[in-house]
């Protein structure tokens, strides 16, 4: 029952499907470079996954309080005090590019 219903939601009319331009935008937001060929592949597979997700619309959820966390507990607070020790050298030892204690990246301000 479950499997049939989910497969049927991959609709041939492509109601929820994405086009190449959508995927270009999403990939940019996600900071992922995609080749032309990859664009086609992802356009297809992402649309298929959205078809699965569309199954959610079968249920009316008006008025239901969203559940962000499995136990509905609020995050605990702690004293605003310094607990971390300085471990810069240790952490920067595994960085791709550092100099004088700074992480190096391409120039962002001209």
């Amino acid at each position: 029952m479950v499997i049939c219903a989910l497969q049927a939601s991959t609709r041939p009319d492509g109601f929820m499907s994405l086009d190449r331009d959508d995927v270009i935008k999403i990939a940019h937001l996600a900071r992922l470079e995609l080749s032309e060929q990859e664009l086609d592949v992802y356009t297809q597979s992402l649309s298929r996954i959205l078809g699965l997700i569309e199954q959610m619309n079968a249920v009316d959820t008006t008025g239901i309080v969203p559940m962000a966390h499995p136990r509905d507990v609020s995050l605990r607070l702690r004293e605003d005090s310094i607990t971390e020790t300085d471990q810069r050298e240790k952490y920067q030892a595994i960085a791709p590019a550092v100099e004088a204690g700074l992480y190096l990246v391409p120039r962002v301000i001209e």
């Binding site: 995927v23 996600a30 992402l46 959820t61 969203p66």
Partner: peptide
């Protein structure tokens, strides 16, 4: 990459309520 892009789409402006909020309601 697929999951990052699905997640990015679900959280992007204009789609948040239809996907992320809806899913949180179903979670309850």
């Amino acid at each position: 990459k697929r999951r990052i892009m699905i997640g990015t789409y679900a959280l992007s402006a204009g789609y948040y309520d239809a996907y992320y909020l809806k899913a949180q309601q179903l979670r309850r």
